[in-house]
């Protein structure tokens, strides 16, 4: 009988059992190998070692627990008075320092809507930093809207550059995977951390605003702008994410602008009728205290804003700002 290429195999029982056993062992080995490679937890990191707490502590020794509230409608003047009352800018900025100003440039909206950091504060703080001998001032944020448009229409970009600061716009390469120790949400999450490389001092500058989700947007919520990726998913756990951000970064100073407070329809506002003239500027080395103090401008208490309570419990600062070295001008 002729077979084309293959011959028909005829096996006896012994051969059949032997071959069946070999096939079974091969299949079992393949399965065992696959199981060995199986990782029930899935991939854990972007790189071999996730970056843990990329931000050093930017606070200055000996300046802890300082807060100053100035009742003054002129932002430039108010900032000067507050910084002076807190020991002068030289207490925080040393000669040769590289300073980063984290502004709130979230929206491409004009300064009169008070949805973003006021350019006058950016200009004045930059000037004060250079006066104290800063080598470089970097102004940055990762806005919600198109960054270039945001820095342009808010007036922040021009104010910063005119004052001699350098505006750093977000790019993909400037985000690094970050894990905040003890955090449940900021785990291996892209954070806008590269601008902080080589930075000696960090100052947050934020307006006081109503916020539809968190109740308020002030100094602590300002760090939300450092998150990359699809950060809007954190809106479901807004108080927890703000608390974790408070653990992530310890700034040199925060400046909370309540000259005009957005009391309704935040965080975007849109109408001048959403604003209330409150003529208050708060400067503090403790962002939790600054927010606790600023809450009153929104007619709210610390208990109305759970993220403040959580941030205090996480050790990020003290909500009882009057127990600090509190100055009121």
């Amino acid at each position: 009988m002729k077979h084309n290429e293959f011959t028909v195999n005829k096996y006896d029982r012994r051969q059949f059992i032997s071959r069946s056993l070999k096939a079974g062992v091969s299949i079992a080995s393949a399965c065992a190998l696959g199981y060995g490679f199986y990782d029930p937890d899935g991939p854990k990191s972007l790189s071999e070692t996730p970056e843990v707490r990329p931000f050093p502590d930017f606070s200055v020794a000996g300046t802890k627990d300082r807060i100053c509230m100035v009742k003054e409608g002129d932002r430039t003047k108010a900032l000067g008075l507050a910084v002076e009352a807190m020991g002068g800018v030289e207490s925080y900025i040393r000669k040769g320092d590289r300073v980063l100003l984290k502004v709130n440039a979230a929206f491409a909206s004009p300064p009169i809507l008070s949805a973003t950091t006021h350019p006058l504060l950016v200009a004045e703080m930059t000037r004060l930093c250079f006066k104290a001998g800063a080598r470089e001032v970097v102004v940055t944020d990762n806005p919600i809207n198109d960054p270039k448009t945001c820095f342009s229409l808010t007036g922040i970009g021009k104010a910063a550059e005119d004052a001699g600061a350098w505006v750093m716009l977000p790019r993909e390469v400037l985000f690094k995977p970050t894990t905040v120790p003890g955090a449940a949400l900021i785990r291996n999450w892209p954070v806008f951390s590269e601008p902080f490389r080589g930075i000696d001092k960090v100052i947050g500058i934020a307006p006081v605003k109503d916020h539809h989700r968190s109740g308020a947007s002030m100094s602590l919520k300002n760090w939300y702008g450092l998150l990359g990726g699809r950060r809007n998913i954190f809106h479901q756990k807004i108080h927890d994410i703000i608390m974790e951000l408070s653990m992530m970064i310890r700034p040199t100073l925060v400046i909370l602008d309540g000259t005009t407070t957005m009391v309704t329809n935040g965080p975007t506002g849109g109408s001048l009728s959403d604003l209330k003239t409150t003529n208050t500027l708060i400067v503090s080395t403790d962002p939790v205290a600054a927010d606790a103090c600023g809450a009153a401008l929104l007619g709210k208490s610390v208990q109305d804003l759970p993220y403040i309570v959580k941030a205090e419990a996480a050790g990020a600062g003290k909500a009882d700002y009057r127990s600090l070295d509190f100055k009121s001008l």
Binding site: H212, P267, T268
Partner: peptide, 11 residues
């Protein structure tokens, strides 16, 4: 939507 109006998107 939240890329434009942030926290007000939920409304």
């Amino acid at each position: 939507l939240s890329d434009k109006i942030n926290g007000k998107a939920e409304l």
